[in-house]
Amino acid sequence: MEKIIVEICTGTACFVMGSGKLLSIEESLPANIRDYVEVQPVLCCGLCRDWTNSKPPVVSVAGKMIAGADEEKIIKAVMAALEGGNLC
């Protein structure tokens, strides 16, 4: 089964706004979905160049960008992606 890829931006703006803490999000995921998720740090999503429309930290879940991401938003997006793919 293909895993849901969670890309976490570790660029300067995202990092100071808390993306560093999100890198360990796997540990906070509910046990039933943890195995379906793969966290990948990325250097910079480039969204900070479009500053007016985004807010750090930026995280992408299965290709979908989340601006101003936090644990709750990521978990919600992962759940949505899992349901969308009928994985659960």
Partner: peptide, 12 residues
């Protein structure tokens, strides 16, 4: 200049 670094909401 990186616009994202100019935002006053960045904590330091």
């Amino acid at each position: 200049i990186n616009d994202a670094h100019q935002d006053p909401s960045i904590p330091f």
